[in-house]
Computed example of a mutant assay.
Amino acid sequence: MRKDILIRILGGFIIGAVLGQIVQFFVSLGISQESYFWVVPEFQALFESETMAIMTQVVLTGLIGITFALAALFFEIARWGMLKQYIVHFFVTALIWIPIVVVLWMPKTMANMFSLFASFLGTYIVTWLLQYKLSKRDIEKINAMLIERGDFHDN
């Protein structure tokens, strides 16, 4: 396996696990002001011990991080257009992120499921728009530099 892929996997796992614990901190604040919950009670109930629940939560949030780190490689497939890159990235990340978030933190109601999907989609659209505008700006700068050097003629 290439070294850069291993670095993405390790970095993605660490970032995902750390962000997962930050999310858990805020979820715990929402559950109780008096004590800290390392995992939500509904998730902990799936395990024989709190330690196993915590370790599983870390692995699952690390998996989210790995997914986003590796899915970023879709944007490096030059023969794919931007639209295809974003559609594939969206579905791959949603396929991993949504079920894990539901299992770890979300009460299982249709309203919550809709809210979760809508927030993921909304965040994705905002991110896509920002990326699109940044990419367009960068392309315009590169084209302007090429025109200035005489390497490119804008028709």
Rank of each mutant, 00 (worst) to 15 (best):
N112A: 08
M110L: 04
W105T: 01
T109A: 05
E42K: 12
L73N: 08
L60H: 08
F25W: 14
L121F: 14
W97G: 00
L146M: 13
S135L: 06
P99R: 13
G65M: 02
T93M: 12
L29A: 11
K84W: 03
Q33A: 12
Q24G: 04
K141Y: 01
S119R: 08
V40N: 07
V23Q: 03
R149H: 05
T67N: 14
L116Q: 07
F47I: 08
E76H: 06
T51S: 10
F25S: 07
M145W: 12
F117E: 01
M110S: 04
W128Y: 15
L130S: 00
A71E: 13
S28A: 09
K141G: 02
Q57E: 13
T109D: 08
F47W: 14
P41D: 09
A94E: 01
A72R: 09
M82T: 05
M106E: 11
L70P: 01
N112V: 03
M52R: 02
A45E: 14
T51E: 11
F68R: 03
V59M: 15
V40S: 10
G81A: 07
K108H: 14
Y36E: 01
Q21I: 01
L63T: 15
G20K: 03
M82R: 05
L95M: 08
M82L: 10
T51H: 02
D138G: 00
I22F: 13
Y132H: 13
L46D: 08
F25P: 01
M82N: 06
M145L: 13
A144Y: 04
L70E: 07
V23T: 08
P99Q: 13
L46V: 02
Q33R: 09
E42Y: 12
E50T: 15
S32C: 07
A45N: 13
K136T: 12
I64D: 11
A72M: 11
V59L: 15
I66N: 07
L116D: 05
F90E: 03
L130I: 14
Y36V: 04
E76F: 00
I142S: 09
K133E: 14
Q33L: 07
F90P: 00
T67G: 12
I64M: 15
T93V: 14
E140G: 04
K84H: 00
G20A: 08
R79L: 00
G62Y: 11
F47K: 10
V40H: 05
Q44D: 09
M82F: 11
L116S: 00
W80K: 05
A78W: 00
I54N: 05
I147V: 15
R149L: 12
S49L: 10
S49G: 06
E48Y: 11
F75G: 01
L19W: 06
F91C: 01
I147T: 15
L63G: 15
Q85W: 04
I54L: 14
L95K: 04
L46M: 15
